[in-house]
Amino acid sequence: MSAPDSREVILEARALTREFDGVKALDAFSFKLHRGEVLGLLGANGAGKTTAMNCLLGLTLPSSGGLYAFGLELQKHRIEILRRANFSSAYTSLPGNLLVWQNLLVFARIYGVREPRKRIDELLEMMEISHLRKRVTGQLSAGESTRVNLCKAFLNKPELLMLDEPTASLDPDIADKVRKVVRRVQRDSNCAILYTSHNMKDIEEVCDRVIFLHKGKIVMEGTPMEIVERSEGASLEDVFIKIARDGEIVDAAAAKLAKEESV
């Protein structure tokens, strides 16, 4: 058993449950995300990742359980928390009819960024997309659009960043660049990141710790390497497929221990 993490808890879910028409999309889901940590949330389609992310963002209210960020209850201190957080998803976009700098300026003002133009220039340069500054957002390629979305997510130097499949639909080269930038920003700012992806390479490269969800419940938790070892799989992708196909809890070490104890 690993020692308790002494770092500051940035985000915490306590027995979070969300039901839709009697079906539990999330079932007593609990976790802690610490400062400086990148936590991967994994699971097949319908496992509960999106519901979890939506609850964490305050877009969906949980049926029961508690959510806390920076030690504050999310529902009561939503605005205070969101000022210190940010979000990017492959499934949302910035208004396509505005220029890139216009979109970023609007969000910089919403988040109260000081010297917004300077910050925007810094981020565009970091993402290697300074040349897109005056381009119409809706005319960008998927890769360019993702990087602009990430600029928006980094605008306020968030202490908590939620990234929903940031490399979806990107070619391997751009996906690699995105992973490196995310890792660099995380190292430089020591922020906490909650990361969902279906790309196991993403998870292995970016995440310090991983939670596997199945039918709304946590079925495995640990570092990517620990999970592969414990499940006796060849790779993280193997573990993912096993869980997705039969939902079995593939924690072989735990199962072995349980068997020994019963004997």
Binding site: L57, L59, I79, L82, Y91, T92, S93, F107
Partner: peptide
């Protein structure tokens, strides 16, 4: 229409 609603609702906007 511009799929920007989530960006606004997860920003610190009352």
């Amino acid at each position: 229409w511009t799929r920007n609603l989530l960006n606004v609702f997860v920003a610190p906007v009352r």
